[in-house]
């Protein structure tokens, strides 16, 4: 099997408007792929189509047989009437042996919070619990929808480092949508720039230099590229938070 998920000529119409138009998309085992694009470009719709929540109006979507998905939503609105401890949430869809669960909590950096209510966690802790739960599903493909939206830059950088570790530990593929362009680009094998259709696609460097990408994201993305190169020379603890260019990209995005 060469691909985990593949779409051919995928089009999605939502409420009368064409959200995705003729999208060819493939993700293979062990790959980290990031989808970038302006608001309303169909990034989340593509993810939800892959998850099966949106029906394509044209084209086809193939999933590898027996494909296991892990999903980290952008936000999980936990109704205050629903009590939920971290431990219970980790075992939401399958019974987790205590040792496996403790290991997951430790890896997520929250070894002592198993008994906490989900509602009492900080934004960063909450996202790490969501990621830990998705990993416990032993997914072939981990799907993240702007999973770092509520985090500050060091928090987001740490989150992506954790993702890279997960990929190298388990060999699962990662598909994510993100606005943290500069951090995400450096952590990806391949970037897809989406705006209803696939504008351009390739390694982060190729995409960052593509004229369509610059047209969509403006001059600020120079910083993204600079940081991308920069990050490969050496490693910062804070994922380049002090880089003035990086800050400008955030504002532009």
């Amino acid at each position: 099997m060469t691909f985990l998920v593949e779409t051919r000529g995928l089009s999605v119409r939502l409420g009368g408007s064409m959200v995705l138009d003729d999208v060819d998309f493939t993700i293979r085992r062990g790959e980290i792929v990031t989808i970038v694009g302006p608001n309303g470009s169909g990034k989340s719709t593509l993810l939800r189509t892959i998850l099966g929540g949106v029906r394509p109006s044209r084209g086809r979507i193939d999933r590898a047989p027996g494909l296991r998905l892990g999903y980290v939503p952008q936000r999980l609105a936990l109704d205050p009437t629903l009590p939920m401890t971290v431990t219970r949430f980790l075992g939401l869809t399958r019974r987790i042996p205590p040792r496996e669960r403790d290991a997951a909590l430790t890896r997520a950096g929250i070894p002592d919070l198993g008994g906490q209510q989900m509602a009492d966690l900080s934004g960063g802790q909450f996202q790490r619990v969501l990621l830990a739960r998705a990993i416990l599903e032993n997914p072939d493909l981990l799907i993240l929808d702007e999973a770092t939206a509520g985090l500050d830059q060091p928090g987001a950088a740490a989150f992506y480092r954790r993702l890279e570790e997960v990929r190298s530990e388990t060999g699962c593929a990662v598909l994510m949508v993100s606005h943290d362009l500069h951090v995400v680009m450096s952590a990806s094998d391949r970037v897809i720039c989406l705006n209803g259709h696939v504008c351009c696609e390739g390694t982060p460097q190729v995409v960052a230099e593509a004229p369509v990408y610059r047209a969509l994201f403006g001059e600020g993305t120079q910083g993204a590229l600079a940081l991308y190169r920069h990050r490969h020379d050496h490693r910062h603890d804070h994922g380049g938070a002090a880089d003035p260019d990086a800050t400008r990209v955030r504002e532009a995005g």
Partner: peptide, 19 residues
């Protein structure tokens, strides 16, 4: 029970788990 609970929490989370 667990399918109902997952679908109550988040429909996309449920779909990813095959519910």
């Amino acid at each position: 029970w667990s399918a109902l609970l997952t679908a109550t929490l988040n429909p996309d989370l449920a779909r990813a788990a095959g519910i």
